[in-house]
């Protein structure tokens, strides 16, 4: 299979091409000034890799995409690109949890044999986090938007937090007090593009046209509105948009 992997959920741009029959992998080389430039860099990066691999878009079998959680804008950039490629070619869209990818990427270089579970975490401000419990090989548990302290109380023994360097300083003291450990990943190592492509081999595919990122968080405006309109249902977006 020919797989394109795309991750724009965080500050670094992760793109790669994997040919699973040969094991050949082409990775986008990270640059220093990648943060907040995904909208400018992603397509030239994909195009350069396609040229390097000598592939045409019609040959792509799958697009593995980090589906979220993560930066809302970042998630949408990757999703818009992945959706449009999938919609215009034979490629299938295969979304993978960003948190799962953070955990699995950390495991690549982890050495502690006692670690049974990973706690991938993204800082969501105000002492809130997007986090999950990842026991490799099993489905994610408790993936959600949490007050950090609530999530910490769920952390299993011998589990280890994983987050991007510089984003977890507010939590380190509490983690250590709870007797747990953490791994700080440099941003370009947080998600491994090759591993994402490999996950894309086995993960379930999604309908590209209706795909929406896993934001795991409604907007403040919607939460306030739903509070006032408890019978309105769970924000079924589709019914609020119509063709004219």
């Amino acid at each position: 299979m020919k797989i394109l992997s795309i991750d724009t959920s965080g500050s670094s741009l992760n793109v790669g091409l994997l040919d699973s029959s040969t094991g050949l992998f082409f990775a986008h080389e990270h640059t220093k000034d990648e943060a907040r430039t995904h909208s400018m860099k992603i397509l030239p990066a994909i195009q350069a890799l396609m040229t390097k691999a000598g592939w045409s878009f019609d040959q792509l079998d799958r697009i593995a995409l980090t589906a979220g959680p993560g930066s809302f804008t970042g998630l949408r950039i990757g999703a818009a690109v992945a959706k449009m490629i999938a919609g215009q070619t034979f490629a299938e869209l295969v979304p993978v949890s960003t948190l799962e990818m953070i955990a699995l990427s950390a495991r690549l270089s982890a050495t502690d044999p006692n670690t049974t579970s990973y706690l991938p975490m993204i800082n969501a401000r105000n002492h809130n986090v997007f986090a999950a419990i990842c026991r490799p090989g099993k489905p994610l548990d408790d993936e959600g938007h949490w007050p950090f302290t609530d999530f910490l109380s769920k952390a299993p023994k011998n589990s280890i937090f994983v987050f991007e360097q510089g984003t977890g300083d507010d939590f380190k003291a509490e983690i250590q007090t709870a007797g747990l450990k953490f791994i700080e990943q440099p941003s370009e190592k947080l998600i491994d593009a090759k591993l994402l492509a490999q996950q894309g081999l086995s993960a379930a595919r999604a309908d590209a046209d209706s795909f929406a990122p896993r934001y795991l968080r409604k907007t403040a405006a919607e939460m306030a509105w739903l509070k006032k309109h408890p019978d309105a249902g769970d924000g079924d977006y589709a019914k609020y948009v119509s063709e004219v």
């Binding site: 809302f72 949408r76 999703a79 449009m84 919609g87 590209a208 907007t219 405006a221 977006y237």
Partner: peptide
């Protein structure tokens, strides 16, 4: 933020 989410959900459909 709501507008952006809607756009992404509809973009492939209006294109096709």
């Amino acid at each position: 933020e709501v507008a952006s989410r809607h756009h992404l959900e509809w973009i492939n459909r209006v294109t096709k």
